[in-house]
Design a protein around this nucleic acid. Structure first.
Lengths: 195, 195
DNA sequence: ACAACCATGTAAGTAGTTACATGATTTA
DNA sequence: TAAATCATGTAACTACTTACATGGTTGT
């Protein structure tokens, strides 16, 4: 149950309305825990019931926009949640199921879809790298900035890995042996955040 | 909606009962799409309604065990599904939400939980490597075997990456600068499947 | 006037989880 | 004969998705 805590985190950084949160989610914490506006409104209502946040209508009268901000009890709840023991969720990767199925009932035209996905992953990668270049170039980063950078780098690593795997799958589907290119660094955590 | 197709794949490899599938899921295709026995029984009933599988009671009378096998229509449906266009699901990573929250309301005792998780990921990694050593050592692999091996290697890569990220997070939490060790190959697809 | 966008919601459905129920067979 | 395991399910619930509804504001 991470959504309420993702919202609390985002609201602590800046008190916002539901729609502002939904938009912000599309390009930060939402990279790792996305949510639609419907989900967000519902969850905000629950958080307010629990007295973890309060909302106030926006002054300028026009419309029914409400700004939510976190109460002390909400902040404490978030801190407790961070330390909670919980097992990692099992993976859920549809493409791996497809590859496994292809191994049994193939060959199919999976290749087309794989190529489409490589392009999508490259797009996402470009987005992440742009954020990294904009927000994390300074030399001396605070603890908080280091953590945020690590989260972003994890996204970069994930996309990089995915592209690599998909290309390997394509090579197998097309019957060519997959060769690792020479002279490239592997994607360690450091290498992955280079351009 | 991958579960029915994961079941079809598994049933094509070997006709089985619900419980056999549930057990098999704990150690193969289920690494990438796990399911509880309740979910599996429900899904098998649906698959039978759709005429994609049929079940027959096991001879030896004792008990109500039923063996399911895939019908031609089921196999065709699986082949069609493999080629379907579908966007990758957005990531859902609770630990990233926690790290992001720690950056805002930390410091907390997240470190303990991170250490616990590193151990869990190492366990999983060991399991994957054991399977790799047992099933994928032969030199000349068929197309099907290559695909299955790639899926397993993706699991290995994923766990490796996760351990790396978690260690980096620990280093930040403890205030030590994170250094990449020298003389290690990065975890490219090839490097990751070495012991 | 009309389109586009801001802002908040309701309704209905699916997937997945958790807890419990039931009976038969095997093992100690 | 008691405990463990095999085998199949039901019930209730939560999270999430998809589609639709509503009204105000801004721009052309």
């Amino acid at each position: 149950m991470s959504l309420p805590h993702a919202l609390l985190t985002s609201l602590l950084e800046r008190p916002s309305s539901g729609l502002e949160l939904a938009n912000r989610f599309d390009k930060s914490i939402g990279f790792f825990w996305n949510a639609s506006h419907q989900q967000i409104y519902r969850e905000l209502a629950r958080l307010e019931q629990s007295k973890w946040v309060v909302s106030s209508p926006v002054e300028d009268g026009r419309g029914r926009k409400r700004i939510y901000r976190v109460l002390p009890a909400g902040k404490r709840a978030l801190q407790r949640w961070i330390e909670e023991v919980s097992d990692p969720r099992p993976l859920r990767d549809e493409m791996m199921v497809r590859l496994r199925a292809e191994a049994v009932v193939g060959p199919t035209k999976l290749g087309r879809e794989l190529e489409r996905r490589v392009a999508l992953h490259h797009q996402k990668l470009a987005t992440y790298r742009a954020i990294e270049a904009r927000d994390f170039t300074g030399k001396t980063a605070s603890r908080s900035e280091q953590l945020q950078h690590l989260v972003l780098r994890t996204g970069i690593l994930h996309e990089t890995m995915y592209i690599e795997v998909t290309l390997a799958a394509l090579a197998i589907l097309e019957g060519e042996p997959h060769r690792a290119r020479r002279g490239r660094p592997g994607h360690s955590l450091r290498a992955a955040s280079r351009r």
